[in-house]
Every structure is written in C-alpha cells, then in structure tokens.
Design a protein around this nucleic acid. Sequence first.
DNA 1: TTGTAAGCGTTATCAT
DNA 2: ATGATAACGCTTACAA
Lengths: 360, 360
Amino acid sequence: MTKNGQATIRDVASRAGVSVATVSRVLNGKTSVHPTLRDRVVAAAEALEFRANRLALSFRRRSTHFVALVVPDIKNFFFAAVSHEIEEAAFRHGYTLFTCNTSDVLDREAQYFKLLTEEAVAGIVVCTANEHQAHIEVNRALRRGVAVVAIDRRLEDAPIDLVLSDNFGGARAVTGYMIERGHCRIGVISGSDDFAPARERRLGFEQALKDRGIAHEDELTKITDFRDTGAERATLELLTAPHPPTAIFVCSGNQSIGTLRALNTLGLRIPEDVSIAVFDDPDWAGGFHPPITTVEQNCAQIGATAVAMLLRRIKDPSAPREERRVPTKLHIRSSIQDLFLKASTEPATTDRPARSSAAS
Amino acid sequence: MTKNGQATIRDVASRAGVSVATVSRVLNGKTSVHPTLRDRVVAAAEALEFRANRLALSFRRRSTHFVALVVPDIKNFFFAAVSHEIEEAAFRHGYTLFTCNTSDVLDREAQYFKLLTEEAVAGIVVCTANEHQAHIEVNRALRRGVAVVAIDRRLEDAPIDLVLSDNFGGARAVTGYMIERGHCRIGVISGSDDFAPARERRLGFEQALKDRGIAHEDELTKITDFRDTGAERATLELLTAPHPPTAIFVCSGNQSIGTLRALNTLGLRIPEDVSIAVFDDPDWAGGFHPPITTVEQNCAQIGATAVAMLLRRIKDPSAPREERRVPTKLHIRSSIQDLFLKASTEPATTDRPARSSAAS
DNA sequence: TTGTAAGCGTTATCAT
DNA sequence: ATGATAACGCTTACAA
C-alpha cells in the first residue's frame, strides 16, 4: 500500500499470493488464468478497493480514454447541443470529453490539435476554423493514430470522416414553403461561401426559387459573418432598400438575433410587415412573438453520429472514409404570412392565434 | 529515437553527450548546470524537436494540467458562457478543460468527481446537483489534493471556495424598477428553494416589495423546476387566476422561454397586457419583440473569478476559504409598462419604439 | 497457466 | 555541478 492510500497492483498480488503479472491478467481478462487464482485476485482487489492508476495506464499504453470537441464557439447553441450529446455518448463508452474553443482562429485550432495529440486523445471531433486549410497538425494527429471526424464544416485535403446536416434540403424546403405562401421576393442572409453549411443553405434557397421558376435577384442576397451584428446590418440594408423583400430567410440562429433586433429598430412587425424563417431552431424560437418558423438541425443525431464514427475509427483506423448527412426538420410556426389570405393577421400555424385581453 | 518518431530525453542526452539527469535539469531549470552543457542540451533538444512526453510526465509527477467544469447542463446559456470563459482563462495558464454534464443527477456528479480525481485533474469548478448533499467524492477529491471551487450553487458541508452572482441584489433592483412603474401585483416564477440562486432571487424580489411597503401575496409566487415547461405551466396558472398580476418576474432565462410560450398561448401582449422581467440575459432578449428587461449575470467575470480562485488554491492548498459575489447588471428595455403613463403602448425604453409600416 | 523481469519516459536520490 | 541509477505502476515478452 503506497503512502497516498491507493493500493497498487503489487499490493493485490501479494495479498492474493500471486505475481503482479497474474493480477494484471485477471484484471484485463485477456489471457486465461486458473479460476482459483482468479477468485483470489478478485477478492484481494475488492478487499483493497484496488483501482488501476489511470496515469500509469495511459503512460504504459500510450493512449487515453479522452476525446475532444474542437469548435469555434461553445456558446453557440448548436455546438453546445452537439457537445452535450457527444459528452453523453462518450461517457457511456468510458470516454471523457475535452472542450476546446477556437474562436474561429485557425492557429488556435492547430495549437489544440498539437496539445491533444501529445495528450494522446483517442479521438477529436472538429468543426474547423478554415475549411480550405487543413493545417499540418491534423495530419500529424492522424499519423499518431488519433481518430478525427469533422462536423458541420468540411476539412478539405484531409481524408477524414464527416457528418453534417442536410443544409441544402432544409433550406430548399423552408424556402419552398415561403414561396407557396405567395412570397416571391425573398431576402436571404447567409454566411461566407467559404463554409460548406452557409454555401449549401444559400444554394438550397436558390434551388427552391428555380424549382418554382422565380428569378433570383442578387440584391436580395446578403453575405455577412456568422455573428448577429453582421446580420443586423444586412437586415437593415435589405429592408430600407427601394424595393424590399416580403420575407427573409436567415441562415443561422445566431444571425437571426441580429435580424430580429433590426426589425425592432425599424418597427416592423412579423409577419404583417415582413415574414421570417430561420435555419436552426434555438430554444426560444417557439416562445417568440410570433413563434418563428425554423429549420431544426438534429444536434443530438449529429453528436451521436460523430461519436459512432469516432469509435468505429478508433477500432479500425483503416475503415473507409464516410460522409453522413443528418436530416433537418421544418417547424412551421407563425412568422410567415400567407399572402394569398387577404386581411389576415396570422398565417397557418401550429400554435393558437388567439387574441384576447385578460390581465391588467 | 523511439519508433514512433518522438525523441526522448535519452536521445537528447546522448546527442548532447551528457546524462539524462542533466537534460532533465536544464529542461526544468530547477538546479543550475554549467552554461556550456546547458547550451549543448538546448541545442540537441531543438535539433531533435524534443517535447517531453506528457503521459510520462503526468505519470511521474502524479498530476496533470487538466481542470474540469462540472455543471448540470452545458446547453444552458449561463453555463455555456461560463465554460467558454473558463476554457479561455485556463488555456492561457496552460490548462485544458474537461466538460462534464451531470443533468442535475447527483450520482453522475459523484461519478465524475471520482473519475476526475483518478485522472488527477488539478482542479474542478462545480455547480452541484444538490447543495445539501456533498457526496463523499468531493471530500475524496479534496483529500487527494484536487482544488475545488463551486459556482452558482453552494456546496454545503464542504469547505470550498465559492463564486456566485449577486442574486439578491439583482432581483431586488429589477423588482424595484417594476414597482416604480406602478406595478404592485407582481407574480414571480422561481426555482426550488433548495438552490441558493433561486432562493436568493426570490428573497430579493420579496425584499423589494418590503422596501416599498407592499404586501406579499402567496398566490403570486410559483415555485417550479428550472425547465421551461414548469414555467409555462406556472405562467398559465398565474394569468388565468381570478385576479392576475400585472407583471411577472421570471427567475431564470430557461424559465422565461416557457413563460413567453404561455403568453403566446393566452394571446397576451407584452407589455400592454402583462409586463415581464427576467433574471439572466440570454442573447435573444434584446432582439425579442418587445425587447425584454433583464438582469444580466456577468458570466465572464464569474468564470474568470472561478479560475483565479482555482489557480490560487492549486498554488496554496491551505489558503483561507473565500466567497465572492459578482455584480449583476440591469438591462432596461421595453417589456415593462409604466402604469402611470396612461394610454401608452410602450414604456420607457432604451430601444426605439417606432411604429411605421414599410415593406410588403 | 504462471512467474520473472524488462521496459515505458521522467524525475529525484544518491554518490562522485 | 554532474552522472549513475532507482523508482513511479503498469503491461508483456519470455521462461518455466
């Protein structure tokens, strides 16, 4: 028994009257040992409340049971939700999760990859800061046997697994819904084409237009950063233009906050003055007044899939590269006016459009 | 040079023509070594791109540079923000962060403490699942030299550092603001008194009432869980009662979503039909229609303080226990009607209450 | 099947 | 100041 109070494998061995090798064997259950000895060892281990020293284990095995999630911003609802799911799934499989924020700075991402590789994590789930520049650390990690899977954004140049939402389909569906409600001048607020999800959502939007033979007007497309401030500015521009759109498709939850703020500033009501749809379904969207029509990404499934792919690759590093799409879900609520229904104040809705006056 | 391509301290030693002990000494800079040898070692290390094996280091030193954040739910905006801050600060000091969700299950918290202790983390920042039951693992961690600081909720029975918001003051201030606008029947939706923040916010609310000599009415207080669904139900009850309040103070951002949903269901407008204030300032609050008056917790400062306290305790385990309060900030927006201003549709506000009609 | 013993990469305790 | 060398706790050849 060492001074710190923790029994070691030696203590167990001597108490059971066997060698440390035997103890190790029964503990790991690889090779078979005589039942009698096995029982003696187990008994001794229990009596001593033996727990293998994890630090020694990692050292010896040159590997750990850590996985990491490297994302631009854990405060973003999407990543927080994915993180939660990954943590949950990883825990079930005996892994513990590191959280790493890059703030979309590539260098920071590289630093983390380096650190995590040195720390011998079993795997990394990453939403990269730059799709076009797979920094050298990614390859280094791969070479060192770290399993890597990308989510949400592609990691070009690197032959790694990928899981992302059906951005194209989701955007196309919700845009189609708007068009069917009579909107033909629809503004879109998207992120940089440098990122797959932004690009795909914008493309899905445009496809819906084409589907219905509606001409695409360039001045209705605003490309901004992924932050709310950029979207706020873009919305202002869109709606103060000479011939403003009747509806706006906002390509992310983060950006939608800026859009909504802009609407407040302009004193425009949803959906009477302008209709709104947003990609992402933040928790407050259904409580908004009016409830916002959204495209929900299945964060849980994305996280679960990422972990599954990670575990698969940890087991079999040479498995064929995979790319998985996770379906989105359209939540039809009350933020899109049906232009065919004259004089209506509320469009088709899932929620009750009651209009009474009670308290006060 | 070992097979995996990483130079070891031995490689450096032989290349520099010195013993491993000397290499170790110059690398750690504890004892002094002759400048000549020192230079040779440094040169060799650089030539070989030597990086000490972290797994071996942890094993040898019996300690790591990991810290952990153990919280009920990382999806909760408050914890996500705190997590971000902790990660940032920790990274600056050479620590990497583990994220651990307990889902408010005490047993899960204990499991994590056990694991983290075995993994020899340097410190744990925890928002406990149960204030009254400091499970044995906390003490075990403490005994094993893990620094622990609690945030948001107290960890009773355990003599550990603590940092939380000025819940009482924040609640008192915003309630006072409502009263000054003429509200004297104010409903409050709070969480279980078993948790310090809920208790303190409710108490702050009641104190504001007392401050102005307003009688407290029991049926205006609703205690629910911290989830939005509980708050939704509570709001419904509050507002369909015979004599409903003119305003509601919601004690957390999570709960406010349920409250807002309930208002939509009832078709009640803010602030014309009912005024709203919420504790917590989720990112969407300012974009809501109308913008919501909130009490913001300074997540960044809470996180930074927690890390500072953690580092201090890592350095000096016997430092005196500390308890720190972080001030809150009142955001006055447009969700509280001024009952003294007759016929008004919008109360005093920071935002512009314009009412025009543009697009479409 | 079981035991002996040689590492794993570092640090720390000895002599020198 | 420097260099052998013994740990640290575990796994795993290799022998028996």
